[in-house]
């Protein structure tokens, strides 16, 4: 049996600020010198275990591994896994870790990657566990902010939409709270406000300045970054509540009238109606660059966890 590897990425807090800065540095180098990295993972296999469908994240990881010269295997929903036969997650992961050098998993149950990392012989990357964590989305966001703004400190960041269930929001707040002079403008309807525990355990604990508001326009002129989110249907137990809130915020040209010229507009995608397509050609719209950046930061992460740099 192979020696058990210890490095995993389950939660963005698993990485120190220095480790995140190093990953960003490597990702930037990959963007500049793609050919230099095209054979770094020759002979390596990435397993993608997606117990919950997610085309974008899965393809981003597959693209990352293929661009590094590695190969990919896996499944894209639990119906095609042995879970349907009643196998436990722990057993599935234990078996697959004998087939691959690194595992990426998405699971609808929160905390599933913790169980997987305990049984896996190879590194585990959490590609989303329910409404809990999605650390590689946060790495993608940090890389994009760093590239667009040239820094990760001294920023006023507007977070807009579903701040209650939005796991990308919670992880981004946690990650950005470790940098100096960060201010958050939390824009949401009352029903989708940031959970109290994020306010007390992250913002207040780290003495981070924040303002809660219902208005998208009120603080628009102050923002360096505007992070939009989709109201996610799958997080609602009540369909009527979802319908009432899904189009609460729609970013269009009129809303950007007072915005800074160098505002950076981000969205984890997929979007529905929350960003009008008329914004897509605005030079401040960076959400597609953000999606492209996701591949490069995932390449950097795979290299780090496989220790092939």
């Amino acid at each position: 049996m192979r020696e058990k590897k210890k490095k995993n990425l389950i939660d963005i807090k698993d990485l120190s600020v220095k480790e995140i800065d190093d990953l960003i540095k490597v990702a930037n180098d990959i963007i500049e010198h793609k050919e230099k990295y095209s054979h770094k993972c020759d002979g390596k296999i990435l397993a993608t275990l997606f117990f919950e469908p997610s085309t974008r994240t899965r393809l981003s990881f597959e693209s990352a591994m293929l661009r590094l010269g590695g190969k990919v295997l896996g499944f894209s929903d639990s119906a095609s896994s042995s879970t349907t036969k009643g196998e436990t997650l722990a057993d599935t992961v234990c078996v697959v870790s004998g087939y691959a050098d690194i595992i990426v998993m998405r699971h609808p149950k929160e905390g599933a990657p913790v169980v997987a990392s305990k049984r896996s012989l190879v590194p585990i990357i959490n590609a989303g566990d329910g409404g809990h964590n999605h650390p590689t989305q946060t790495l993608t966001d940090l890389l994009t902010i760093s590239r667009e703004k040239g820094r990760l400190d001294n920023l006023t960041i507007g977070l807009c939409g579903d701040l209650k269930f939005g796991r990308t929001i919670h992880s981004l707040i946690t990650a950005m709270s470790r940098y100096k002079n960060i201010k958050f403008i939390l824009i949401s309807p009352d029903e989708l406000k940031l959970p109290e525990y994020v306010i007390t355990e992250v913002l207040e604990k780290n003495h981070i300045e924040y303002i809660e508001t219902n208005s998208m326009e009120e603080y628009m002129n102050e923002l360096d970054v505007l992070y939009m989110t989709r109201v996610q249907k799958e997080r609602f137990l009540n369909e009527a509540e979802y319908v009432r809130l899904k189009d609460y915020y729609i970013l269009d040209k009129s809303k950007l009238e007072t915005a800074k010229e160098d505002l950076c507009i981000l969205h984890p995608l997929p979007r529905v109606n929350e960003i009008s397509t008329e914004i897509d050609d605005d030079k401040r719209a960076k959400y597609f660059e953000q999606a492209y950046n996701g591949v490069y930061i995932r390449m950097a992460l795979i290299l780090k966890l496989l220790e092939v740099l």
Partner: peptide, 11 residues
């Protein structure tokens, strides 16, 4: 939490 892995994973 009904979405916690402990609600479905055995042992």
């Amino acid at each position: 939490n009904p979405r916690c892995i402990t609600s479905s994973e055995r042992n």
